[in-house]
Design a protein around this nucleic acid. Structure first.
Length: 574
DNA sequence: GCCGTTTTCGGCCCGACTGTTTTCAGTCG
């Protein structure tokens, strides 16, 4: 999957062109880059399938871009970027990453003061040289200083699992103000994106001053980047950036619409509005001639007036949803309340911390019809994996305790390690004793792609395997996914009836959105699991559902939305 | 550089906040 790699190259080209003052071209490169990022299939597959012509079918990819992609796939580099890099020092591009320093200001610093690196910049600030430049001043100098510090602290996007609880706590806090009429989380957090750059919060209020005062003085605030009556931005002590936008109740829907879709989605929406003689902004849909609001009280109004069905927030990323919305054929995505059970959990028999009994009773309290306990197999020694002897006892113990919980079906299973040649950690005879087998990779991540694919295919050939657990093994922001031929694996899995997992652990979210869509289109069934290691973590199901929604999954694709009796259709031993 | 039942050339989403300016450019999302 080289989509991200090529996107990164295009972003770089855009930055340099921006610095050179080139108009429009940077926009085209960024658009192409984003289009690649959200592409469900690997770009090399698209190219292999239909060459340049097929590439050009992708939104934002034209003649030049498809040539570029071809060049990168074949030679691993882009001549255009190499040439462009000669015109501007790398350090100046780095300077542009600093908040408040855009292409214009960075180039002034480079041209007038010969600043070409971050150390140069710090020295010039110390010598008070910057404040003397036209368009700069003392305040700008101070801001750059603070923002360099922020940049050096790290500017990585935060995982959804870390961002969402923070966002929710701010919402809870502001909700208590009587000045707040309505409040919601917007932006990429509402779309459930696996990482979040900053948190957007929308507030409907007629007294913005009070709300903004409360927001910017919260104890968790490190620095206030901006404060106005409709928009304020702060950086929290944990380095998360949070925006609050305040609007009037009358335009709530317009704002919710505007602050949820990604850029591409919103651009297409505005174009549809323009074609009808209207203008779309956070203040709703407005008639150009009369200046009157056509729609804006609710999000649904905005979409409907434009002739569209309202897409769920998670898929508002211009990856096909608008075309289907026009035809009123949007899929009905899976919801948390559709989930009837959890098929991948751990107890204190391996590396979990809750007892078998507590896991079962909590699952029952959550209203589940079934739960599978799937502790680790013998080779996963760090996770206290069980050898055959302990496994026997485990099976016995679970069966015994399950008798006290007749209202919930309890499955005994195991998360079994997949060795490098694809054979499993327990023999077939042992696996047959289990109700359900989740097969997972827990080490030897860095095998060559063809060998890794073979490892997985061999595992899929084993009749005792029910679910392929967290297939790519990535840890968000920490560990890269393993490499394998996803299309081939999904095809074989669909054929063999092995279910692909969406691990809801917020650090994993694996499969990820684009892979889920690919797997479903290849005919795979999906299981959304919490991979809980204690009773609280059973709630991770929520993140799995959000991710599955981003992968356009519907209840029929998700086996654990099915009734218990229907599970036997996919799980051979039930 | 991309794209098109308004266009194959001439557009390219829209608005808020800041700081430096006395009306606006730059930056951001």
């Amino acid at each position: 999957m080289r989509n991200q790699e090529i996107a990164a190259i295009f972003y770089k080209v855009a930055d340099i062109l921006d610095a050179q003052g080139v108009k429009w071209e940077p926009i085209a490169y960024r658009k192409a880059a984003r289009s690649l990022e959200s592409l469900p299939q690997p770009i090399e597959d698209v190219y292999a399938e239909g060459g340049k012509a097929k590439l050009m079918e992708i939104e934002g990819i034209g003649n030049a871009m498809s040539d570029h992609i071809e060049e990168i796939l074949k030679t691993n580099k882009l001549k255009k970027l190499i040439e462009l890099k000669k015109t501007i020092p790398e350090g100046v591009l780095q300077m542009m990453q600093i908040e408040g320093l855009g292409p214009k200001k960075a180039m002034i610093l480079f041209k007038k003061l010969k600043i070409k690196s971050l150390p140069d910049l710090k020295k010039a600030i110390k010598d008070q040289k910057i404040r003397k430049l036209e368009g700069f001043g003392e305040k700008t100098e101070q801001n750059i200083t603070a923002n360099i510090e922020m940049y050096e602290k790290g500017h990585e996007r935060v995982s959804l699992g870390n961002a969402l609880p923070v966002a929710e706590s701010i919402v809870e806090k502001l909700k208590k103000l009587k000045e707040v009429d309505q409040i919601m989380i917007g932006g990429s957090a509402r779309r459930g994106k696996e990482t979040v750059g900053d948190i957007d919060i929308l507030v409907a209020s007629n007294k913005p001053q009070k709300v903004m005062d409360e927001f910017t003085t919260m104890s968790s605030v490190e620095r206030v980047l901006g404060k106005g009556p409709t928009k304020s931005t702060v950086v929290l002590k944990n380095n998360l950036q949070v925006d609050v936008r305040i609007i009037k109740k009358e335009t709530w829907g317009g704002a919710a619409q505007y602050f949820t879709g990604n850029v591409e989605h919103n651009v297409v929406m505005r174009k549809i509005a323009i074609a009808k003689g209207w203008k779309l902004s956070e203040y709703g849909l407005v008639d150009n001639k009369t200046g009157r609001m056509v729609a804006g009280k609710s999000e649904e109004d905005v979409y409907n007036k434009l002739g569209l069905q309202m897409p769920p927030p998670e898929i508002r990323e211009n990856s096909g949803e608008i075309e289907l919305a026009k035809k009123h054929q949007l899929p009905k995505l899976v919801e948390l309340r559709d989930i009837r059970g959890d098929l991948h959990t751990h107890t204190n028999w391996s590396d979990g911390t809750s007892s078998i009994e507590n896991m079962i009773s909590t699952a029952q309290k959550m209203g589940y019809e079934y739960i599978a306990l799937t502790d680790h197999s013998k080779s996963d020694t760090v996770a206290h994996g069980m050898d055959e002897k302990r496994l026997e006892k485990y099976i016995e113990e679970v069966r015994k305790i399950a008798k006290h919980y007749p209202k919930i079906h309890v499955l005994v299973g195991s998360e079994v390690y997949i060795h490098q040649d694809g054979h499993l950690d327990y023999s077939d005879d042992v696996l047959k004793k289990l109700d359900i087998v989740v097969a997972s990779i827990h080490r030897a991540f860095k095998m060559p792609k063809d060998l890794m694919t073979k490892r997985i295919i061999n595992m899929l050939e084993n009749k005792n395997v029910d679910i392929f657990g967290h297939p790519t093994t990535r840890i968000v922001n920490v560990r890269a996914p393993i490499e394998f031929d996803t299309k081939h694996v999904f095809q074989v899995a669909a054929d063999r009836g092995v279910v692909m997992e969406v691990d809801g652990g917020p650090d994993r979210l694996d499969l990820k959105d684009t892979h889920i869509r690919e797997a479903i289109s290849e005919g795979c069934k999906i299981s959304i699991d919490s991979d809980a290691h204690d009773t609280n973590q059973l709630r991770f199901m929520k993140y799995g559902v959000i991710t599955a929604r981003r992968g356009w999954a519907t209840p029929k694709d998700i086996v654990n939305t099915w009734k218990f009796n229907d599970l036997a259709k996919v799980f051979r031993k039930l």
